[in-house]
Amino acid sequence: MKQNISTYKAYRIENSGNSYKGSVKNMELGTLAKDEILVKVHYSSLNYKDALSASGNKGVTRNYPHTPGIDAVGIIEKTNNNSLKVGEEVIVTSYDLGMNTNGGFAEYIQVPAEWAVKLPEKLSMKEAMIFGTAGLTAGMSILRLTELIKPEDGKIAVSGATGGVGALSISILNKLGYYVVAITGKTTEREYLTHLGAKEIIFRNEIENLDKKPLLKPLFAGAIDTVGGVILENIIKSTNAMGVVTCCGNVASPKIDLTVFPFILRGVALIGIDSQNYPMKYRAMVWDKLACEWKPNALSDNYSEVKLKDIQPKIELMLKGKLKGRTIISIID
């Protein structure tokens, strides 16, 4: 018989003036609204948005105290929705989770049922969070890229290569037979990137310092860019005729300074990836692929695991750009 739970633990970010601090607090469960579900969280994961939310970035989270965590996986404890049943294992990522809705850094989340994807049979809960939003974003990027670019077409560049999206993109593309060129600012991570499947490594300053011409020598058949700014500009200018570049991040800059020449003289396609509100039909498709033919052989080599109480040091490393791979949070003892 299930226990009647009224309180739960959550990693709460509280503010005092301009200072933001996180700690584990006891929270009370609310009443489920129509079409909501209550999920007992087993794992969450740390993403850049979580680090921003935990440091008081009002572009991510408007009001505090707040529970970050844009990723969660667990078991439905209660439901007010006919399509999902108590006991089903579900993944909840993105939408407003962890932004202005209390997120996955907690023992329970209470969310609209339409945010949940049933956990694929061939994916464990831990594996789902090693992927998390980073893996989903990588998968969305790869889905769009592989629609138009095949392994025989040439090299694929991946920027921000040691980050969550970049590292998983390299692993998946390598498994699919693509020749991957990793772009990174971390000169000490050559061995790590090679282990993921990168065949070549280009350091960030080499890409940033390319010529300012509107078109550059073609180097890549396609690319997955996770950082934006000058790196994205120069990747686009260095992409082959009829190449494809996906973009999903702006940590370097949200701005790009380009002419239309790569697009109208080479036919390069630039595809934006919106992982937050990606349509559920395609979201479920990507999760199914991640569970099966896209699952990297070395997926378990690409993460570290912490408890709720030990999140803060990882957040600080992420904000400094010193975290590599994925960090998952084990909620169940």
Rank of each mutant, 00 (worst) to 15 (best):
D153I: 02
I149P: 09
W115L: 02
G197A: 00
P296L: 00
N240A: 04
I235R: 01
A138D: 14
R12Q: 14
E152R: 00
S55G: 01
V60P: 05
I170A: 03
E89M: 01
I329T: 03
I142T: 09
C248E: 08
R283F: 12
V181I: 08
M27K: 09
I70L: 08
V268K: 03
E89G: 01
I156M: 02
L232D: 13
E107A: 01
T259S: 12
L317F: 04
S6G: 10
E89L: 01
I76Y: 09
I311N: 01
L119A: 04
L308N: 03
L193C: 06
G154K: 00
A116M: 07
G22Q: 13
T187I: 14
V90R: 03
S16L: 14
K58Y: 12
A198G: 02
D310S: 01
V92G: 00
G132T: 06
K212F: 14
A138F: 13
T61G: 05
E305T: 05
A138I: 12
G154E: 08
I207S: 00
T7Y: 14
E305K: 03
A51M: 03
R12I: 15
L232R: 00
S16E: 15
V268R: 03
Y11M: 05
N174D: 13
L196E: 07
P313R: 01
L219A: 03
N100Q: 05
G164M: 04
R12Y: 14
L38S: 08
A116V: 07
K212A: 10
V245F: 04
